[in-house]
Amino acid sequence: MKFIKFLFVGVVFGIVLVKSEAVSWYRIYEMFRFESFHMYGIIGSAVITGVLLMLITKKFKFKNIEGGFMSVPDKEKGLVRYIVGGTLFGLGWALSGACPGPMYILVGTGVFSIIIVILAAILGTYVYGVLRDKLPH
């Protein structure tokens, strides 16, 4: 039963991204052509709200349900991995129109061919894991 809250979070996540059309290939294409504010509005207002929520969290030292302070672990320092990895991700995101959340959500909307993208993404992650020690980070 302790997982039910995570199921609920996932359901809300799926509903929001479908209802806002952020799972749509067309919206991603339109965003990268700078022809609509819609996606920038979603990401921008999410980040602004998120920044405010995290500032309030730190200021008032909110605790999580496990009793510790609410916080996010810092990302490791680096440059190459973020810019190269990010660019490769962006190429795939614009081509397939799906990032790692929407690809599952789209299965729920009945587009089963997206499963090919999911399997290919799992393969891509696997290849990264195998090559990891040989790549600059």
């Binding site: 490791e76 990895g85 397939s96 090919i116 993208v117 891509g124 990264y128």
Partner: peptide, 30 residues
């Protein structure tokens, strides 16, 4: 197209240590 697109998403996101949710929303918010 689907296989190359998916592969790049999977490889790139792990190399970069996150995707739209981990970096664009969580990371930028912090």
């Amino acid at each position: 197209i689907l296989i190359i697109g998916g592969f790049l998403v999977g490889f790139g996101t792990r190399y970069a240590g996150g995707c739209t949710s981990g970096h664009a929303i969580t990371g930028l918010s912090n």
